[in-house]
């Protein structure tokens, strides 16, 4: 009996109907946080003494970089739950997390490059963080490519879940190795984005932006998963009724 809630949670229909009520409020909170954070960060936060106004891209770069890594773990955990308890919904969450995570990683890389141009005078620097982020992007691409390669949905889900789990074990090793590699080749003169040195007046809008992005992530995940549910359950009666309106 104690497991009933768990299996209910695994029911796509229950999930879909339950989350309908949250979507609006979550979207509202997200928009408010993002607007406040953006205006505060762009208009009111002081200019950086060394980097001028170009530093302001951290208000996008840092939150997306955080989420890119966290998103991989969301994907892997969803995949693991899917494998262990064979819950369809969990795989849907995994697939959503893969796409959204890859996009966020790409945005983090892109904003990093845009930031690099005025700061170092070049679009790309083989910095430890950027390199790790790039490898993370490749890991996401691998999961998405594997998912797409299988015709059979069940096998595709299992395959990408296994790969995501393997990636989870590897990510700390990859990050540590890349860090080590970086210190080896470039003694830490290019220490970029030292959070410790960040001024408190810059930190507050950054925190607002980070929470805004977390809400955005949650909203995107729910939205995407709901779309996956409608697509994969399209033959069932309740989705047909839903689509009829």
């Amino acid at each position: 009996m104690g497991w009933q809630w768990f299996h209910r949670l695994g029911s796509p229909r229950w999930f879909y109907e339950k989350t309908s009520r949250w979507m609006f409020w979550l979207a509202l909170v997200t928009v408010v946080l993002l607007i406040v954070g953006t205006v505060w960060g762009l208009a009111f936060a002081p200019m950086d003494s060394k980097q001028g106004n170009s530093y302001r891209i951290i208000f996008i770069h840092v939150p997306t970089a955080f989420l890119a890594l966290a998103g991989y773990y969301v994907m892997a955990i969803a995949g693991a739950v899917g494998i262990i308890w064979q819950i369809k919904l969990s795989y849907m969450v995994m697939r959503s997390a893969a796409t959204i995570g890859a996009v966020l990683t790409f945005i983090a890389l892109l904003t990093g490059a845009v930031w690099g141009k005025p700061t170092w005078g070049t679009w790309w620097v083989w910095d430890a963080r950027i390199t790790s982020m790039l490898v993370l992007f490749f890991l996401y691409l691998g999961v998405i490519a594997l998912q797409g390669a299988y015709q059979n949905g069940v096998t595709a889900n299992k395959a990408s879940a296994i790969l995501a789990l393997v990636g989870t074990v590897n990510i700390p090793i990859i990050y540590k190795s890349v860090d080590w590699w970086f210190t080896l080749h470039q003694p830490a003169t290019l220490k970029f984005m030292g959070e410790s040195s960040i001024d408190i007046s810059m930190a507050y809008p950054l925190l607002v932006m980070i929470s805004g992005f977390y809400c955005l992530y949650a909203w995107l995940m729910l939205h995407w998963t709901r779309a996956e549910i409608v697509e994969s359950e399209q033959k069932t009666v309740w989705v047909r009724d839903l689509l009829k309106g």
């Binding site: 490898v135 490749f138 890991l139 691409l141 691998g142 999961v143 490519a145 594997l146 390669a149 299988y150 096998t155 395959a159 296994i162 790969l163 393997v166 990636g167 590897n170 090793i173 990859i174 540590k176 190795s177 890349v178 080590w180 590699w181």
Partner: peptide, 26 residues
């Protein structure tokens, strides 16, 4: 992971190469 796919070759490289990073570095 790719053995049941008829064209697994390139995909295999794609999914495995990022995992080779630490071995290459050291």
């Amino acid at each position: 992971l790719t053995v049941s796919l008829s064209k697994g070759g390139l995909l295999l490289s794609l999914i495995i190469m990022p995992l080779y990073v630490p071995v290459l570095i050291f």
